[in-house]
Design a protein around this nucleic acid. Structure first.
Lengths: 200, 200
DNA sequence: CGAAAATTTGACATGACTCAACTGGAGTGG
DNA sequence: CCACTCCAGTTGAGTCATGTCAAATTTTCG
């Protein structure tokens, strides 16, 4: 299998992903293909760093990445973790085109497909399907984030941990515990303590 | 001024609000007007209650409302507070058409304009402007919610209170302190304590 | 195998909660 | 227009969830 075959597999995966939500023909999609670019990153590399402006929408083909920031004491706070078929971005920076405060970091060797903001907006003007796809995606992202906000307000750390384990079983096994702790907004020590306490 | 004049003022306000974000002609907008309905509510009335399905997008013309839910012990947790020119909804229930867990409650006498989901989706199919308007609105809502999530993770209760006061000065003066506490995810007693402690 | 990274442990500190009592206004009815 | 009630806000004592820091242990990986 040569490089082009592999690329075309990746694009096929993206097309299938889009087709889970909207209808779009392969020929139409192929028109836009040249605007999407494939990137392969090693583990622990950054797709975005603080003070940079997020210029792309990014889709994970394979691998794993997270969005995190630092508090004043330098502790990491993870806002999002994504695997295959997730989109990862700092939408704040992408939408406003202002400098980000976030890192987007790969947690494994990761392949992404990304598209530049201007190019994507061009596509929005031509394609109702793509435009609808992203509207629905953002809607869904909003709803999950609201669910998470609610969870954070309603339940204690252990309940949140359990929910994380059931909702993201596949993620849990692939990322170190200190990152899960930083996603749950607790210290690694406290997560360790909770695991021990509830071991049956 | 008769009732129709007042209604038309309200619709005019909505049009101006939409025009802050997208371009749309008055004639086009007038086509959709019959689908929007005006409602006036007294203080402390509910626009939505748990187990109901949210069937409308709701725009506040005047007054004030909040979205909140209850934890197991029956404590109120406020997820959103809105005043004139805000949209209030439980998007989870609206988008999925599943039963809500939220109350949407007026905090003052409040006038809203609302539109039924099916009607709004009809409009999406006819009007790129309206469709874009809502895409952008939801994007912005996502970004603010992410900012809030970040704030909650990064800063302590008093910092959050201060930020609330500067970001929403107009809201702060109109809603009781226990509701602000429930928005900040602290108890009213603790907010009272913080205010005293930092009084200069 | 050895070094670095991740996890666990334990002692102690603290931010935030609970509960109960008290204070002070705002609204209401007589 | 007073008296009463009721609700929001305040106070304080005691408690609990979670954090901090430092050291010990285990795992990962070059």
């Amino acid at each position: 299998m040569n490089i082009d075959d592999i690329s075309s597999l990746h694009y096929q995966q993206l097309l299938n992903h889009i087709r889970e939500i909207v209808e779009i023909s392969e020929t139409e999609f192929n028109n836009y293909l040249p605007k999407f670019e494939i990137k392969v990153l090693k583990k622990k590399q950054n797709l975005l760093e603080p003070d940079q402006i997020s210029k792309h929408m990014r889709y994970i083909v394979s691998g794993c990445a997270r969005v995190y920031t630092l508090d004043e004491q330098g502790n990491e706070k993870t806002l999002q973790i994504g695997i295959e078929n997730w989109w990862v971005n700092d939408l704040y920076s992408y939408i406003t085109q202002k400098p980000s405060t976030m890192f987007i970091q790969t947690l494994e060797e990761t392949t992404i497909i990304q598209i530049n903001k201007n190019n994507l907006e061009d596509i929005f003007n031509h394609s109702n399907a793509i435009s609808n796809f992203f509207r629905i995606k953002i809607q869904n992202a909003y709803v999950s984030l609201q669910e998470r906000t609610k969870e954070n307000m309603l339940t204690d750390a252990y309940a949140r941990y359990q929910k994380f384990r059931t909702d993201y079983r596949d993620i849990e096994q692939r990322v170190p515990q200190y990152i899960i702790a930083s996603y749950l907004d607790i210290t690694p020590e406290f997560l360790s303590f909770l695991r021990k306490k509830h071991k049956s």
